[in-house]
Simulated assay, not measured.
Amino acid sequence: MQHWLILGIAIISEVIATSALKASDGFTRLLPSVIVVVGYGIAFYCLALVLRTLPVGIVYAIWSGVGVALIALVGWLLYGQTLDLPAIVGIGLIVAGVAVLNVFSKTVAH
């Protein structure tokens, strides 16, 4: 179960880093640029730890699916970006896919 917590930390770190990447304005602003580097460093370190116990395809599907949904939420909340209905449906399908992997796949070690 610890691997799920570490994967969660990896995802949150990646979302923070990606959000700061927008704020870094092409790496022209120091603090957001530092957050990008540290955030991605933590994210990839945690991802490497998780890959010791879980299959890479499953981990990457969860990482990217949850990350896409969270980044879309951050974009909406912090940057005022809007999503049209097809975008919302698409993100919903990604989240549904992650849920199917976790609930029904025998590939995922619970």
Rank of each mutant, 00 (worst) to 15 (best):
L31P: 05
V36N: 12
T18Y: 00
E14M: 03
Q81R: 04
V36S: 12
L78F: 14
I35Q: 11
V98T: 13
L54K: 02
L101M: 15
G67T: 06
V103M: 03
C46M: 01
V34S: 06
D84K: 00
G26K: 04
F44E: 09
N102T: 04
A87D: 09
V34D: 06
V100G: 07
G67D: 06
V108A: 11
H3C: 07
E14N: 10
I62N: 14
G8P: 03
A43F: 04
P32V: 13
V66Q: 09
I58V: 15
F27R: 08
Q81I: 02
S105C: 07
L101R: 07
A99S: 08
G80K: 04
A23L: 12
I6E: 12
G75P: 13
S64I: 12
I11V: 09
A10G: 02
G97T: 04
L73V: 15
L70I: 11
L78P: 02
R52M: 07
L93W: 01
A99D: 02
R52C: 04
T28A: 12
L21F: 04
L101G: 07
H110T: 00
V15R: 07
V98D: 15
V50I: 10
L49A: 08
A96F: 11
S13N: 04
S24M: 03
G26H: 04
E14F: 01
A23S: 06
V108Q: 05
I42K: 06
K106Y: 01
L78N: 08
S33T: 15
V74L: 13
F104K: 00
D25T: 01
V66G: 09
C46R: 00
V38L: 15
F44G: 11
V98E: 15
R52T: 01
G57W: 00
I58R: 07
F27S: 13
Y45F: 09
A99V: 14
A43Q: 02
I35K: 09
W63K: 08
I58A: 15
Y60H: 13
G39V: 02
G41F: 12
L49G: 03
D84W: 02
S24W: 02
I42P: 10
S19D: 03
A72M: 08
A17E: 08
W76I: 10
V100L: 14
P86F: 04
V38H: 06
G65T: 01
V59S: 12
V100P: 03
V15W: 02
A17P: 02
M1T: 03
L85Y: 01
V95L: 15
N102F: 00
S24A: 09
V36R: 11
V36W: 05
L83T: 02
P86Y: 04
Y40N: 13
G8V: 01
G75D: 15
A20E: 09
L70Y: 05
L70C: 11
R29W: 01
G92A: 10
L5D: 12
V100W: 08
P86T: 04
